[in-house]
Amino acid sequence: MLPAARTRIRIFAIAAAGVLLTGGGFAAGRLTAPGGDSSTAECAEPRKVSQEYLDAFTAEQEVAEKRTNGRMVANTILQNPDCFGASERASAQTILDNIDQGVQEDAFNDLQKCVDDATDDFPLNSC
């Protein structure tokens, strides 16, 4: 084979490989990307549920009820990552972290109060 023919074959092979890699990358991206209409339909319910719990928050609610609603919103978002953006997922995780921290602080404060209130009639081991 002539050197010029070899060079043309190499150039053709490199170009073909580039086209295949680019097309394959594009196809893989389309397959793994969130869907269009079907994704919207699949996300309607999680978005509706999260919005309902967000709308249910009031200043008059008990702390336990606020925590329950907060967990419902956060879990709905975190369990449906394709339906919510990165900032919404980060906020949901922060909500869960704050709720857990509040529960731990309440438990510690309750224990501290119990220890402080312990007397001969109400022994410490009752805490």
Rank of each mutant, 00 (worst) to 15 (best):
G102H: 04
D55T: 15
E62H: 09
E60C: 05
G18L: 14
C114I: 10
A16I: 14
A64I: 11
I99G: 03
R30H: 02
A107I: 13
T76K: 10
T119S: 14
C83F: 01
R30Y: 02
T32D: 01
E88I: 03
T94Y: 03
G25H: 06
G35P: 00
I11N: 05
A4G: 05
R89F: 01
Q61N: 12
A13S: 14
T40M: 08
A74H: 05
L96C: 06
I14K: 06
V63G: 02
A118N: 06
G70K: 05
N75L: 12
A33G: 02
E105R: 15
A4T: 15
A27I: 13
Q79D: 13
R89S: 07
G25N: 06
D110L: 13
Q51S: 14
I77L: 13
V49S: 07
A59R: 14
L21D: 00
G24S: 08
T58D: 09
P46A: 05
N69H: 08
Q61G: 02
V115A: 13
V63D: 10
A64W: 12
K113Q: 11
A16W: 09
D120Q: 11
A41D: 08
N98T: 08
A15R: 09
L78V: 02
S126G: 04
E45W: 08
A4S: 12
L78D: 01
I95G: 00
A5F: 08
L124G: 00
C114P: 00
P34W: 03
E62T: 15
P3E: 10
I9N: 06
C83H: 04
D110P: 00
G85E: 09
A74V: 06
R8G: 01
A33I: 05
N109D: 11
V103C: 05
Q93H: 04
V73G: 02
G102T: 11
G85K: 12
T58L: 04
F12W: 12
Q104G: 05
L21S: 08
K66C: 04
C43P: 01
C127R: 14
P34H: 07
S91P: 00
F108H: 08
V115P: 00
A41S: 08
E45V: 15
M72D: 02
A17D: 02
A15W: 04
Q79S: 15
A41H: 05
A33H: 10
A33S: 11
A5M: 10
E52Q: 15
M72T: 11
G35I: 01
S50I: 08
L2T: 15
F84V: 04
T22F: 11
A28S: 10
Q104E: 13
D121L: 05
V19M: 14
A33Y: 03
D82H: 04
F108N: 12
F26D: 01
M1H: 12
T94A: 13
Q79W: 06
F122G: 01
T76A: 09
R30G: 00
N98F: 03
Q112R: 12
A90V: 07
L54K: 13
V63S: 10
D110N: 15
